[in-house]
Amino acid sequence: MLRYVWNRILMIFVTLFLILTINFLLLYLMPGSPFQNPRLTPSQRERIEDKYGLNDPVLVQYGRYMYKVSKLDFGGTIATNTYDDIFEEYIIDRLPLTAKIGGIALIIGTVIGITFGALAAIRRNSWLDNSVTVLGVIGVSIPSFVFAAILQEVFAINLDWLPLFYREANPDIGHSLKDQNLGMIMPIIALSVLPIASIMRYMRTELVEVFSSDYILLAQAKGLSKPAVIFKHAIRNALIPVITIIGPMAINLIAGSLVIERFFNIPGLSNSLVTFTLAKETYATLAINFFYSFMYVTVILIVDILYGVIDPRIRLASNSKLGLIGKLIKSIKRKFQSDNAGGEVNE
């Protein structure tokens, strides 16, 4: 077993190494230069690029970069001396806020989504069910930047209830902690629309399927009360696959959404990632990319290891002996391997 885990961790290093390599090559091939001052003539630009070693053979640049990375130094911005160490000064500085906003949005999305999805499934074909279906589809149908524009127009400009955008509390400029907290409301709402809609739809479908399965029939046959059937058997089992879609969703939410960040002035990673990429700030882009990949690969690893721990036995054992956690792990595993189908867009 230890050997398996060890192999997998080794594999992660290989994967991350390959990810860096491929990203590096792609960014190297991308046209443009980090020195985008229109005042510079091409020959002046070249001289400055020379100074930063950007015109060296690709292998030399790559070797130099990998050597730095091996010492856990991801480099900083090239054209300006804004960031010396992008990982330390930037990602660590910015992550808590986006994680907080994304986390709250995720919790809201999960609670509302599961509640209404379940209610809709229990009261199938009622007005509640129909409106949940319609709202769910609308939620995934309206682009988030339109939603953000509407929120801003209505709640900040017309009604003047909420601040226009997020501002950090700063007595020097005159923003209180209250402003800061109020400023998070709109981005949280805008962010939670997609989780609410997709979790709601997913919950409803799963619960409907559970209701039609044999063990629910058995439970009913045993004479259990309706609430007991719903809460003890149906919802519990329907929740497992629902939780599996929350995993990838959480990565997306923590990483933040480009549109929401732009509209509400949130110092997050997505917006900077796009800016850095367009500015051909290779090291900064690579560092943020690396961080994304690291989260992604780690989640897969954790799932795989947990699965690997149980694997030899569950193949033999029948599903019913698995227990909640076993089922959860199994379905997470299935989720990652199979349909990321809906491919919900979070941009």
């Binding site: 400009i157 955008f165 917006n271």
Partner: peptide, 15 residues
């Protein structure tokens, strides 16, 4: 006092 709002839309700036 300079307030930094990097991605403010033109309409938001006026507001």
């Amino acid at each position: 006092i300079y307030e930094l709002v990097e991605s403010a839309e033109p309409e938001v700036q006026v507001q």
